[in-house]
Design a protein around this nucleic acid. Structure first.
Lengths: 339, 339
DNA sequence: ACTTGGCACTCCGACAGATCGAGTGCCAGC
DNA sequence: GCTGGCACTCGATCTGTCGGAGTGCCAAGT
């Protein structure tokens, strides 16, 4: 049904449309790509492509633009990820290596992605549930207040204030701190919760209320997923989305403000070790049907810690964007792994 | 020069223009406000106001719109801050009281402000330099790595990883921890740095390298202003800025992405205990000449901890916005003070 | 069987008048 | 000092025209 030339035509249409932002016609096509055939032939091919739903015309007798389905085919079979140039790679590496701590790594990554792709960048903090416990600390604040601090192997710090019914003596505090660390350090967060279940039994009855409240705060920190923070960057690139965008920018901005939407967006992508592209209506959220999301996981060799990606108009430079996302993910994975 | 009626006219122009977003003419003015005089009279007044630079016409023979100078006069002398309704106040209070920790307070505040004003909200984290030390903690990670954690009275946690040249025995760690806390707890961050200057002298020469590196990390946390984080919300309200906004939204989005610009913006406002309005070109940043910033400080009774505010088009509802900003600042100040 | 040139047709976009109406400035009269 | 009247300006809107890009189809060529 779709011979090689028709695929060539589709590829040419996508490429031209992406670069010119205007519907592309048969004549312009043969002029810009040496297809070796006449416009009339191309027209026939275009008609076939339109029948199959890969391209469409905005109105009768205008040029063609790719449909979501057309982009899908383009991404899956007609294009290859465009590797970044050596200077670009070097720039990424040195930029990320200058980072001070986890916050800084994430902040730099998001800037980098936004600049490289000239689109909106999204970076998820390394997820709590996949990382391990590095240390638990108890800090007395006032006589009836304790600060519970959880430090993870990915360098994240979670804190919670606990109100205690009774005053907590330093000895109990030390004992509790020692026990908590002995039981959990090195253990995955998800599993750490289980290890703590019999902790209250090791303390005297009058100590138990305090132990219990500390424990519940800690468990909250351990389990709670809601702190799966996401950082955004390059929002101003939205202004380049298109000339029709008073209409289209609003819902996108709204969607971007919702952490939940972004989390879902990254979450929906499948295997995190692979580059995922979700095109137009493939994105569940309705404000984002005019956009595409290119995302992938990042992390150490052994496991993916979190995801990152960019959001742009369906009419985007897929090969270039995919190359940038993949490259950034690799480097940031390396950096995170080292620290 | 400007009698009372002329001021009334200016006020009416501002109010009408804000609500209709269209240049307002003399006839419409007398219809909507009972000024008790004829359109012709109003026209004379308008001509006078225009001579003085308070209003302008977009083109010959269109209605008038206020200039920055006009808004300035309106804000300074023609309007009063509009207090929120009781239900609104109650909603603010209960919404903020549900907050879990400092991050949550800030996140909720920014949402609240954005929703109340339907504009872009900006909230600065309680500044480090104004808060005090609550606790310093040293956590061994590996044999040659230490985590230095600084907890402030405002509930903020700063952390830094320190590489030590030698292994650090637990006894030294305990001693150092005790000394650090003894010297700094309760002291303002800005002053704490000074108190630590002679600390190395209290340790033996072979301990000093470790002490010195911990100290430098801690001082960095204490002094460093760059973590003066700012949180944004309600960006999608930008889409309501105006119909001419493909042109105008871009620079605003760009400005909002720069933490530095936002910090300056809030910083420029004078006395933080008072509500400040900066209109149009009064904002130094060039991307924001079409916007106004309403900001104020928030904090405990005794001192202002940080600032918050909203950014919107110069054509905004000043009394309402000012009321909302003031109310939110009061409540969040109360909440922060309690924790 | 595919490709090609030709041709009629469609329809968007730009341009030019024409018209409308809101708003103004000015002036003479109250 | 206020008011009504009046001529004028100028943007916004509508209309019609025109050109051009692009299409679909067909008959002829390879």
């Amino acid at each position: 049904m779709l011979d090689d030339r028709k695929l060539d035509v589709l590829r040419a249409i996508v490429e031209d449309y992406v670069s010119t932002e205007e519907p592309v016609g048969s004549k312009a096509l043969v002029e810009r790509h040496n297809l070796g055939v006449s416009p009339a032939t191309i027209r026939n091919d275009m008609a076939a492509l339109e029948d199959e739903g890969y391209i469409a015309q905005p109105h009768t007798s205008a040029g063609r633009i790719p449909t979501d389905k057309g982009y899908r085919l383009f991404v899956d079979r007609l294009s290859t990820v465009k590797p970044l140039s050596v200077p670009e790679r070097r720039a990424i590496q040195s930029f990320l290596e200058g980072a001070l701590d986890l916050d800084d790594i994430v902040a730099r990554t998001v800037r980098l992605l936004a600049q490289l792709t000239r689109q909106v960048a999204v970076v998820q903090y390394p997820s709590l549930s996949r990382s391990g416990v590095r240390h638990v600390e108890l800090v007395p604040l006032t006589s009836h207040r304790l600060l519970v601090v959880l430090i993870t192997t990915t360098g994240r710090v979670e804190q919670r204030v606990v109100e205690t019914s009774t005053e907590v003596p330093e000895t109990l505090l030390g004992e509790l701190r020692a026990q908590l660390n002995a039981l959990t350090v090195g253990v995955r967060l998800a599993e750490a919760a289980g290890k703590l279940s019999d902790l209250p039994d090791r303390f005297t009855p009058e100590q138990r209320p305090v132990v219990a409240s500390v424990l519940s705060a800690l468990l909250e920190s351990l389990v709670e997923e809601h702190e799966d923070r996401i950082v955004l960057g390059g929002t101003s690139n939205l202004a380049r989305f298109g000339p029709d965008f008073p209409h289209s920018i609003r819902p996108v901005l709204e969607a971007l403000e919702e952490q939940m939407v972004l989390l879902k967006l990254l979450g929906e992508a499948g295997d995190p070790s692979v580059l995922t592209v979700r095109i137009g209506a493939e994105n569940a959220h309705e404000g984002l049907t005019g956009t595409s999301v290119v995302s992938t996981g990042y992390g150490t060799e052994s496991e993916m810690l979190a995801k990152l990606g960019v959001i742009g108009p369906t009419r985007m430079d897929y090969p270039g964007t995919m190359g940038a996302v993949r490259a950034v993910a690799r480097y940031v994975g390396k950096i995170v792994g080292e620290s």
